[in-house]
């Protein structure tokens, strides 16, 4: 063991002698051959003690080099630590991101396979509005052109499916402004929330889901909005608010699929 250590020590020491030889010509310390030092340790040791003792400059240079190595090791360790932490955080973010995409994909797929929600035909819109009959009544009074509304919603929604999220956000926002009393405005707010989630803007997402919950209390998207808002608040770190929303799903919509998901998320 000691041989290993002494080898480790002597190599930098000889290096430092070399260094001094170059740096301070006046000291005229003989430049020792590195190869010799490594191949013949005992000889080197004699030389080193004979050479190193007389010159305080060499002591200091050696000590400095020793410090430098130690500093480099510490620096390397702290960089390693940072790399480990960055890798870990990156992985977590990636997993999170992937989870959000998968979640959105799943919702879109279920949506397209159950044309109930997506307004591809007038009948389906009627089905949707049946859930909220009051809204349907208002809609018939307020909305001048239900066909235009449907088309605008469909356009915005197709942007989501094409994963043009920023464009979708713009389109959905214009939609809710253009058709504030529209029969699909609840859905639009909900999907705004979903897209904000994917984009990582959890605060905006939470706000959008809250609109669904508050302004469309009997909308069929409410359980999902409650769940999603809960998840969003978890991500913002507001755990008490998150838990309250998730508990609401459990209590108010115990049989919904959102309730099952909420159960998993409650901490």
């Amino acid at each position: 063991m000691y041989h290993a250590v002494s080898r480790f020590i002597f190599v930098p020491m000889v290096l430092s002698l070399t260094l001094v030889g170059y740096v301070n010509a006046n000291s005229a310390v003989p430049v020792t051959d590195l190869g010799n030092a490594v191949t013949d340790e005992s000889v080197t040791r004699v030389k080193v003690s004979a050479i190193a003792q007389p010159s305080p400059a060499v002591h200091n240079a050696n000590a400095q080099l020793f410090d430098i190595i130690e500093l480099l090791q510490q620096e390397l360790q702290s960089l390693r630590g940072q790399v480990e932490e960055l890798t870990f955080n990156l992985k977590r973010l990636k997993d999170d991101q992937k989870q959000r995409y998968l979640d959105l994909d799943r919702r879109i797929v279920s949506l397209t396979s159950q044309p109930v929600v997506e307004p591809t035909s007038p009948q389906e819109i009627v089905v949707t509005s049946d859930v909220n009959s009051n809204a349907a009544v208002n809609v018939s009074a307020a909305v001048a052109d239900p066909e235009a509304e449907k088309a605008a919603y469909k356009a915005a929604f197709s942007l989501i499916r094409e994963r043009q999220y920023e464009a979708a956000i713009t389109a959905l926002n214009s939609f809710v402004v253009a058709y504030p009393q529209g029969i699909l405005v609840g859905n639009a707010h909900y999907w705004l929330g979903e897209v904000y989630m994917v984009e990582g803007d959890v605060a905006a997402a939470a706000a959008a889901f809250e609109i669904v919950i508050k302004d469309f209390p009997v909308h069929r998207k409410v359980p999902d909005a409650l769940y999603k808002a809960g998840v969003a608040y978890q991500k913002t770190g507001d755990l008490s608010k998150a838990n309250a929303l998730l508990q609401r799903v459990l209590h108010e919509y115990p049989d919904s699929s959102a309730a099952r998901l909420a159960q998993e998320k409650i901490q």
């Binding site: 000691y2 250590v5 002494s6 020590i9 020491m13 040791r45 080193v48 003690s49 190193a52 003792q53 002591h59 050696n62 000590a63 080099l65 020793f66 130690e70």
Partner: peptide
């Protein structure tokens, strides 16, 4: 070890 290395750098035998 830090003290040991310091001394060795100053010419003390590891033994």
């Amino acid at each position: 070890n830090a003290v040991s290395r310091y001394l060795v750098v100053q010419g003390v035998s590891v033994d």
